[in-house]
Amino acid sequence: MNIKIDDLTGPEVAQLVGEHLHGMSQHSPPESIHALNLDELRKPEITFWSVWEKDELLGCGALKELGRQHGEIKSMRTSSLHLRKGVARRLLEHIIGEAERRGYQRLSLETGSMEAFEPAQKLYASFGFHYCKPFSDYIEDINSVFMTKEL
C-alpha cells in the first residue's frame, strides 16, 4: 500500500469522497453529518492522504490541525471494493504517526453513533482512542460519538 499526500484533483479521489458523503447521508440526519466535501478538504489546516495499490485507490483520510497540540481525524474511508483488507488500519497508523511527528499531544475524532459506525469505533478503540465529550466546535448530539487519544 502506498500512502501519499493528495491534492484532491483526481477523479478517483473525487468519487471516493462522494461515496463517503453519500454513505454519511444514508446513516445520519443532515444536521449530524460532519463529513467534508472536496473544497473543505483543501483548506490549509487539513492534510489529505490517499491510499493506493498500483493504480487502484483503496482509501483516504485526513488530519485537521485544531491547534499546535491537537489534531482531528477527518474523512477516513475505505473504498467499498477494498473493505476488510487492512486499509483503514494502515492509514490510521500513518495519521497517528504524522500527528506524533507534528508534536500533537492529542488526536480526536467524531463519528456516528449508529450501528453502521461500530466497525470504525472498534478500530479507533483498538488504537487506544476512548470516548470523550465534544471537542472543538462540536456539540452534544445523540447521532455522534467523540473519541480522543493522548499522544
Rank of each mutant, 00 (worst) to 15 (best):
L63T: 05
G59K: 11
R102V: 06
K149A: 12
W49S: 07
F135M: 03
D6P: 01
L38I: 15
H82I: 02
M24A: 15
E12K: 13
G67N: 14
S50I: 09
L83S: 00
G86I: 01
K64A: 10
W52R: 10
Y124N: 07
E65D: 05
G61I: 03
R90C: 05
I5P: 01
F117I: 07
E56W: 02
P44Q: 13
M147T: 00
P134C: 13
C60S: 14
F146I: 02
L107V: 15
A88H: 03
H94V: 01
T9K: 14
T47F: 04
L92W: 04
V13R: 07
E118D: 06
P119I: 06
P30K: 08
G128Y: 11
R84F: 11
P11A: 11
I96K: 08
E65S: 14
G67W: 07
M114V: 12
C60W: 06
G97I: 08
I142L: 09
G10R: 11
M114K: 14
K54R: 13
E98I: 10
Y124P: 09
A125V: 04
I3S: 02
S75F: 05
L81M: 07
L38K: 00
G86Q: 03
Q105H: 15
T9H: 12
T148I: 04
F48Y: 15
T111M: 14
Y124S: 05
L109R: 12
G10F: 07
D39S: 11
R101D: 11
K43L: 09
P44I: 01
S32D: 11
H34L: 13
H82A: 10
M114N: 05
R90W: 02
I46Q: 05
G112W: 04
K85A: 06
E115N: 10
P29C: 11
W49K: 01
G23Y: 07
K54L: 08
H94S: 06
L91K: 05
W49C: 05
I33R: 03
R84E: 14
K4C: 13
K64D: 11
I96W: 03
M1L: 14
L92E: 12
Q26K: 14
N2V: 10
S126R: 10
I5E: 14
E110A: 09
D55M: 01
K149C: 04
T78A: 04
D141I: 03
E19G: 00
G67Y: 04
V145N: 03
H94I: 06
G128V: 08
E110V: 11
E12C: 06
L63K: 05
P134F: 12
Q105C: 09
I46E: 00
T148P: 00
L66K: 08
G86A: 02
L41E: 06
Q121T: 05
A88F: 02
G97D: 06
H94R: 03
L38E: 00
A35F: 05
E40I: 01
P30G: 08
A116H: 13
L107F: 12
R42P: 01
P44V: 01
A120R: 13
G86S: 02
L8K: 01
